[in-house]
Design a protein around this nucleic acid. Sequence first.
RNA 1: GGAGAGAUGGCUGAGUGGUCGAAGGCGCUCGACUCGAAAUCGAGUGGACGUUCACGCGUCCCGUGGGUUCGAAUCCCACUCUCUCCGCCA
Length: 428
Amino acid sequence: MLDINKIRHNPEEIKRALLKRMDSVDFTELLEWDAQRRNLIVLNEEKKAKRNKVSDDIPGLKKQGVDVQGLISEMKQLSNEIKENDNILRDIEAKIHNFLSALPNIPADDVLPGGKENNQVIREWGSKREFGFTPKHHVDLATDLGIVDYERGAKIGGYGFWVYTGIGALMEWALLNYFITEHLKDGYTFMLPPHILTYQCGYTAGQFPKFVDDVFKVEASEERENMQFILPTAETALINFHRGEILKEEELPKKYFAYTPCYRKEAGSHRAEERGMIRGHQFNKVEMFQYTTPENSEIALEELVEKAEKLVRGLGLHHRVTKLAAKDCSASMGKTYDIEVWIPSMNDYKEVSSASNAYDYQARRGNIRFRRTNTSKPEFVHTLNASGLATSRIFPAILEQYQQEDGSVIVPEVLRKWVGRDILKREE
RNA sequence: GGAGAGAUGGCUGAGUGGUCGAAGGCGCUCGACUCGAAAUCGAGUGGACGUUCACGCGUCCCGUGGGUUCGAAUCCCACUCUCUCCGCCA
């Protein structure tokens, strides 16, 4: 949610910034509604002030024996006018709210306009491995090793699901353990939130109403506000943890991380080259989240990117960091870095972490504020999130980047204590 | 799922139609006293919106949404949540 005051005072500036990610922006109607709203408020508050004044006087006048019948019927008329104006006001405010809710965040100054084609690679780590043999696809590797069962996954869950079996499940769990251990070392607080959330959670995160059809709904409630859905990312839960609260400045930054599976419909987004684990309906992810003061959010974003990168580096996987152009950022985000790992079979880099600063956009939607001193006015916090990490791209990257000619796969050093072996071999 | 009780400011707790945005207490902030602290005393202490250069002023908010009334924390209706008991179940 953007600040209507900002739009009122700098419509051209906001418009210019939004055009980096939107095809057209027109505030004409919005500003008209805004003016109508404020005029109506002044008018109606004057009427209310009069009503309050007269109503306060009535008991005294009655005591003095003055006939107040005239006043009372006058106030009755006034009350009707007020009620009418309040109805008009409610309609205008609904229009303003709907308009503002649909606007995405303002891209940061250093974010380039346009879509994917304008994403910038900031840095790379490692390099593409030269295979002395024909490398295999992770689906074939995993199937041959017997660590992921795609066929039975589809049989029991439908298309887009798989089953980690035996050592595969151990590998998956090892990754999660590795992430969790690192975040704990850095002083982040471990959270295990509900996986089923209310509509309001999706709204605060900035995912609803636009993407309400991309999630799995639990209750087919007629009223949208009463629906519940299975979370598409732990971010949706963590942004809502402090919804409606006023935090103390000394509590900030709040640093959380959560493990949850993520559930996404991904309707219409399946592509042949993304077979396997690259885009499923359910994947495991550890998500980092921070609530900060406005002045500290830029630094926090760098910290989150660095943490995510460190995890990928720790696994020894070739990857790069990209700064997303405006249209490629999620609507709630003002700035996003993606960490992308190399997938040899695709000869492409796929996102394993997305680190974003929402600035006060989500905080406004969720009314999450903080106070600097006991007496100062509450201000909106800034919120940031970053995957740390999603396993569903890391798992294939490990299989493919660490595969050997005989189809075995070397286990990254940091995972060995949990997997209990150095190498994954077929005969196991 | 059934029955009952409740929801008031940071907390506690009064208030059942007319200066109640809300007594009292606790907490917190500032000040006085003190070498300092404690105790004591004094003052202050919610949010949103609008208006104003500013001081300020106005409107709204006592779980949420409606209604009655000149006037609602207080009366009526619906809903939500919490607690207790019973049933069912992991």
